[in-house]
Design a binder for these strands. Structure first.
Lengths: 186, 186
DNA sequence: GACCAGAATGTCACTATTGTCACATTTAAA
DNA sequence: TTTAAATGTGACAATAGTGACATTCTGGTC
């Protein structure tokens, strides 16, 4: 639960501290006071909502996680590692899940910006993962990149269910890098 | 009777540890000192009362404790529903996951106190779920109740891996209720 | 364009609160 | 038991809140 002080907001908005305090007092900006003398604190999410409401620019440092990450879902560790290498070379943090349960936990914990998903994992239906994820409002921003050795028709179906991109195995590092960079910069 | 350390409160309020100690010393926040050197402890309920008194936001993780829940992992919906009925009759909230991915997400989102886990789910290795969960510090408080039609040896193995109780199918509602009540009251 | 009222924002000095740092000590984990 | 992580403390630095008042902005009018 990250919060900002009135001073931090003042410098973000390039405005006087006095003014920020007035915004909070007027109810224009939602905040709360510490018990001491009533120093103000504002939840980051409330501040972002405030910025959006007034069409003010949102500083990069506030946008989502400081370091958007990638979740790699693949039961074959060597493959996963190779994807991770490509991701790292492109400058992105990543996590590996070798099973559905792990994937769910890591997704929920890290809220990555992109998830690469192997469709043909034994004992795990990639399609239902896509479906379930797409049903959840919380992950509507998540980009799903399907990776599979299956035929075009299977990949098509994945896209229909809500995947954002597909790569057929074997894929070139270049293609993967392109896709990751595209989604990670959105 | 759950308590919080000054450090935990500091991070909840996004405030310096020093400040929290001052609040306690000033009597603004009710707390007590351990015999050692006087490390501070605050009852969760006192902390919540403090937050409310100052119109400060209450972290989700504290609200959660108010209504501990149960996560039911079973691919057969009828079975899951029947477990849910037993849970509800005992007065507990519960969530159902019919796959590993779903289970991971629900576990992470709701942080239930108890998870019932069907060992013999097609395409999902219950053992690895237990192992993975036990490796994570975050879920060390989670009680895992293994439910399975498998033989005693399999259940034994689950217990060795870190499950807290096991029930052999078919189980009696009474036994399940006993187990749930025991763990939910801890 | 000049003028004006009213509102919003900035400035300043002063005080209270909060943060920082180094170090001793306790707790919790391995 | 040994080790690493948290916590408490005191002194001091940095930051935030307040009130009164100056300054700038805004929109409307002539």
């Amino acid at each position: 639960m990250k919060t900002l002080t009135s001073g931090e907001i003042a410098s973000y908005c390039d405005v006087n501290l006095r003014t920020v305090i007035r915004w909070i007092e007027n109810g224009k900006l939602k905040g709360f006071k510490l018990p001491g003398r009533g120093n103000n604190r504002v939840l980051v999410e409330d501040f972002i909502e405030f910025l959006e409401r007034h069409d003010m620019p949102i500083p990069d440092s506030l946008k989502g996680d400081a370091t958007p990450s990638i979740l790699i879902v693949d039961d074959e560790m060597p493959v996963a590692k190779s994807i991770q290498r490509v991701a790292r070379r492109a400058g992105f943090d990543s996590y590996i899940a070798t099973g559905g349960f792990q994937a769910g936990i890591l997704l929920s914990q890290h809220e990555p910006r992109v998830m690469t998903l192997d469709l043909s994992m034994p004992g795990m239906d990639g399609y239902s993962v896509i479906e379930f994820t797409r049903e959840q409002n919380k992950y509507k921003e998540l980009k799903i990149v399907v990776i599979s050795a299956l035929d075009d028709i299977s990949l098509e179906r994945a896209l229909e269910l809500g995947a954002d991109a597909s790569l057929q195995k074997p894929f070139s590092n270049h293609d993967l890098t392109m896709v990751l960079e595209q989604f990670m910069s959105m």
